[in-house]
Design a protein around this nucleic acid. Sequence first.
DNA 1: CTGAAAGCGCTTACAG
DNA 2: CTGAAAGCGCTTACAG
Lengths: 342, 342
Amino acid sequence: MQQSGRPTIKDVARAAGVSPTTVSHALNGKGVVRRETVERIERVATEVGYRPSAIARGLQKSRLGLLALVIRPFHSLDTFLPEGVDYFLRVAGAASLSAMEHGYSMMLIDDPTRPGVPFSALAADAYIVTEPFENDPVLTLLSEQRIPFVTLGADPARRGEFPAIDEGADQQTLLMISHLAEAGAQRIALVTGTDRNDWNLGSKRSLTSWSEARGQRPLVLALPEAAGERVGDAVIDHFFGGDPSEHPDAVFCLTGRHAAGVAEAAIRRGIRVPEDLLVAAGSGAMQNRTSSPTVTTLDLHPEESAQLAVEVAVRLAEGRPIDTPIAVPAATLDIRESTTRA
Amino acid sequence: MQQSGRPTIKDVARAAGVSPTTVSHALNGKGVVRRETVERIERVATEVGYRPSAIARGLQKSRLGLLALVIRPFHSLDTFLPEGVDYFLRVAGAASLSAMEHGYSMMLIDDPTRPGVPFSALAADAYIVTEPFENDPVLTLLSEQRIPFVTLGADPARRGEFPAIDEGADQQTLLMISHLAEAGAQRIALVTGTDRNDWNLGSKRSLTSWSEARGQRPLVLALPEAAGERVGDAVIDHFFGGDPSEHPDAVFCLTGRHAAGVAEAAIRRGIRVPEDLLVAAGSGAMQNRTSSPTVTTLDLHPEESAQLAVEVAVRLAEGRPIDTPIAVPAATLDIRESTTRA
DNA sequence: CTGAAAGCGCTTACAG
DNA sequence: CTGAAAGCGCTTACAG
């Protein structure tokens, strides 16, 4: 029956005394097969432990039932994911679960344009690319190969060219700026990461124009995402080094860990939070809710976005139309102690 | 050339004026092909944007270059991953990265024994199953189908039957018990989760025999993992309700979030931590390092374990022998304020 | 050095 | 209602 490996459709056919065609029909509910035959085939199939090969089937339809999530900053997050970088992992978890609900599996991959990537890394039916870089080569590759994809956040240089779940980082930044201003901030500094994605670039643009509209020199500093809390002193040194009239009274860090470090460093150096300095984060890290003071963050709703991305990816994989523009979950504020003055 | 979809090996062959066989040989460095021919074929291949189909290739070798990570408590973690459940996500991240380094992609899947799972969920070359349940049907399925797998933690009912990265939860528990005893604990209570995995069952066994050896009635309580910090009051009520001579002076919670809740509830109710009560966690959550007091945890080294699991899975997928027993990274202690008396 | 043929395990017109 | 045949895109003996 099964000489070396798994039983195939032929084994089932032989054991049931029918042709492979009929087995296929019976098991897939295609064509017309007599009731009894179907039942016999099903019985035999489970007896011999038959399980159709996803690969062989994939070859027909050139679809594997596989989605891929490209976490763009995977490597800048460091070989081992630092604790507290919740955002991408929450996206990955939600996306995987959601994919299964749609009948797909989800692959987690790094950059598929690197030489020597596994072939399987390009075998997915559709791709979700999180936080693409400016002119991201991954998007270029996928679109050249006509492989369907959707991005989570836009390629800042090619916004609108590709399907995207994208509220716009500038939009999100504005939400936080307004909150800080309402909370009393006159001079807001921004700390971004260094990856050239929309999240970093768009926020900078947004803060810059806000500052300039008020006749202020924009206070912006870019520091590596992976540096985490360690950036605290560097940020304080940078913004509180020179002319006191140029000191910010609020610091908005795009990453939660940067914000945690800044709040800690400020307090350690006698700058009270929130009395002297408001501190807020773009993408919340766990410690922002437990630190003292707790830190105000944006909630980017990673799970909802991931679910939406999966939905779009599935439609693309199946060649079905997508609703455009895609309605995106809007960022909301989690207001905490660090921006709440008594 | 490429009528509807991607170019195939035939398109390349035609464009290069050779047979598909020669293209295959040239591109894979198999057989003997003249230098110039190889170069011409390579040139043509990139010109037409040819990329071999991982699926077709997979059909030959019945290998896709795909690994799968089955996160067993995926659903008990809830549809959306609660923040702070670091452990499994760190495993997932490290495993995905490590897989790519070995030339494989990594799929994240939920229970592949559920009816209606995508076929692709069973198409991986080898599986990693994290924290299998007692007599886990996933392991039964995989082993029946002769699909290679390795577990992260053992099936408590079938320890030793399958390849496993497994230090043994009882071992790990003992490490923490010793620490608590050294820190002055006389009576240690244990709070486990409710999944029937080795982590929960082995710890209970370990604490039970330790208590009984000292002539004490074991203090053990099982509460759902997903309840998180909310269990705090229930735990305090349970252990501090009755006879004061039976009150614990240390609580060891297997999950970090349980521990965070217990410490918070204790303090709120006038039980000082660590003076009156030591609190510790098995698997650290982020907030354990930032809460006040910070909470002592075990470090289970999820990244190293994940890497090791990938290595084993790859060997299994390729039919290579594995070193047994597998040398496992030992849990270590992260001693913090909650178990440090002045 | 190169290619025709068979085959991997399925599905899908098509014919009976 | 059932099956023989072709084909999905590759690889791999084998023959020339």
